[in-house]
Nucleic acid binder design. Sequence first.
DNA 1: TTGATACTAAACAATGTGTTGATTTTTTGT
DNA 2: ACAAAAAATCAACACATTGTTTAGTATCAA
Lengths: 192, 192
Amino acid sequence: MEKQKKKKVDRRVQYTKMVLRQSFIDLLEKYPISKITIKSICEKADINRTTFYAHYADQYDLLNQIKQELIDDVHVYLANFTFHDNKSESVQLLNKIFEYIKENSKICSVLLNDTTDAAFYEQIMAIVQNLCMEQLTKKAFNQNTVDYIISFAATGSIGLIRKWLDTGMKEPTYTMAEIILKLTNQGLTAFV
Amino acid sequence: MEKQKKKKVDRRVQYTKMVLRQSFIDLLEKYPISKITIKSICEKADINRTTFYAHYADQYDLLNQIKQELIDDVHVYLANFTFHDNKSESVQLLNKIFEYIKENSKICSVLLNDTTDAAFYEQIMAIVQNLCMEQLTKKAFNQNTVDYIISFAATGSIGLIRKWLDTGMKEPTYTMAEIILKLTNQGLTAFV
DNA sequence: TTGATACTAAACAATGTGTTGATTTTTTGT
DNA sequence: ACAAAAAATCAACACATTGTTTAGTATCAA
């Protein structure tokens, strides 16, 4: 009963956050984050600078919130799916992810190119892990080695996605899902 | 004859650059680059701010020069080796690299954690590519797919190294060289 | 020693930062 | 429709950093 009352978000707040976020992303496409000032974000968004500070500590805080929203968004997007170790299911699921990335390619490009924040990176990796490496953790590998393999596969997948985004998301001979699954699953067999 | 005269670098310049660089790296270990001011670097180094501007445009320029020096350093470090597709040679070579990283773990940690700069990333990836993926390009794969695989393996390797650095460079059950080679080579076989 | 080069110190305008308090506008609940 | 609450605005503020200039000093290489 207590948490039932979800505070309705003020329309103004919604608008302010939306427009600040959008300005910021637009700027991020043109300039490195180090050159983007709070002032410039606010001017582009036509929002008072004082208002910015009411919502965010600084640019990086704004960036983090954008990241978090994306993570949540992806989780919602995938929530409907049930997981099986059936291979075609994995492919289907990964395809769904690439569909999502394609739809949100603009923001994904920006966010994946900034990997200074380890937390975001690891959350993305966690998603990949859950999708592609179920069988990995089940088998009785040496845990130490497993961690390294997971790092490799997860980071590699992100690199793959970045390349895909940078080159205009052209579908290669194999689908992205196929490539990822083949590379990860096959890589594992080296350690069985 | 023309280019023979290599200008001797002034000792003062050498000292200035060295101490600025060192201060910067020290600060990078403690604070995110966005919080590091030119002023703070200079104060720590006890160098006049005007002098900083004589050598670097800003913090990011300094960072780039540090990166470039590291790349050059690695190339020199590996220059003595000759390449074979003999497997044990590859292992030896990779071990050499991990030796280098271990010796320079402080700076490597800092530099590898900032991947906003694609150029540096790609130069590191190029080294990994040349070392581990000779046989890859030789085979008649579909070029489109090859590019993706290279991205995956190279980025994955960097992720692996980052993890290794973050966890104190403990030697896992398999050596790092073994893991990288197994994962990359094995991953390839999926596309033969 | 000498000429060249590099560093320092001080001052400068320009820009961005983060916070304040008073005021206006919009939303929400009744 | 109205009053209370919440949010955005505005102007002003002290402050820090930036990047550049100028003149003087110290160090270097030869």
